[in-house]
């Protein structure tokens, strides 16, 4: 019985080694980017990945989760670079020495979308007032509920409005921006979204932008490296290469025009090197 067991163990090990034969060669070539859903749902990274791979010879693995989950991956040393939009959390992990060489990449803005008939009458109000109106009318509001950058922004606005959202009218989807917009469109609810994802999806849904342009609604994306001195297994050169790539003039030019032909307006505005 003992030898039989050993045979199984050996077979399993052989299997693992065979499976990882392809894996080992790419250990140094692979750069894992943990990022928010908006950069992939909008299609931006589909355009940037081949450019990055071609320019640097690395192989970029894009793991698209919310900013919260992406930052958590960084905190475990499970990613080499982060591209996220949750400034407070970014500051926190930068202070903790988890993230280094953090740089501004681009911005767009959040918009408050909802059904065209606007049951809570929020159109063009200041954003905190609009949130108050939604809560008072108990109009359906869909929250991401996933610790993402958008979710954090939304919670910040509720806090500013002095409201703790709860009840039948406030529902958390726990999924990405695209999925949440779909739910909002289907149930005729309000939701806060980044403009890029909304523009990418709008043709399929019945949601209008009801509120935009408030200073409060600025959405800033930063790129950063996960600190290789803190995590031995992080690909230091690869992470740095990605940060450099994102702020390089050629990449910024791609960002500037991305989506303009399809949506009639750009989805992101390049910001590299700018003061915040």
């Amino acid at each position: 019985m003992f030898t039989k067991n050993r045979l199984w163990v050996i077979m399993l090990i052989v299997l693992m080694v065979m499976l990882s034969a392809s894996g080992c060669t790419r250990a140094n070539q692979e750069v894992i980017l943990a990022t928010t859903t908006s950069t992939t749902d909008s299609g931006l990274l589909d355009v940037l990945k081949p450019e990055f791979d071609k320019q640097t010879g690395y192989d970029l693995t894009i793991v698209s989760v919310g900013s919260g989950a992406a930052i958590a991956m960084g905190e475990k040393g499970e990613a080499d670079a982060l591209l996220v939009h949750s400034p407070k959390d970014e500051q926190r992990i930068e202070d903790a020495g988890v993230a280094v060489s953090r740089q501004i990449v681009m911005h767009n803005d959040f918009v408050l979308v909802g059904p065209a008939d606007d049951p809570a009458g929020i159109k063009d109000k200041p954003v905190a007032e609009a949130f108050k109106a939604i809560a008072e009318k108990q109009a359906l509001f869909l929250s991401r509920g996933d610790e993402s950058g958008t979710h954090k922004k939304e919670l910040g606005i509720w806090e500013k409005a002095g409201i703790t959202p709860a009840g039948e009218w406030y529902q958390e989807t726990g999924t990405g921006m695209g999925a949440t917009l779909n739910v909002a469109a289907e149930k005729k609810g309000y939701t806060l979204t980044d403009r890029a994802t909304y523009l990418a999806l709008q043709e399929n849904m019945d949601l209008q932008i009801l509120l935009e342009g408030d200073q409060e609604l600025l959405n800033i994306y930063h790129v950063m490296q996960v600190n290789p001195e803190k995590f031995a297994k992080v690909n230091a050169k690869g992470g740095k290469a990605f940060v450099d790539f994102m702020v390089a003039p050629e990449t910024q030019e791609i960002i500037k025009t991305f989506g303009a032909d399809k949506y009639g307006q750009p989805l992101f505005f390049p910001d590299a090197g700018k003061e915040e």
Binding site: L19, S20, G23, E30, G77, K233
Partner: peptide, 12 residues
């Protein structure tokens, strides 16, 4: 990476 079998580099 930091799991017990991380050295195989099999994730993703």
């Amino acid at each position: 990476r930091n799991g017990p079998l991380g050295f195989f580099h099999l994730m993703y």
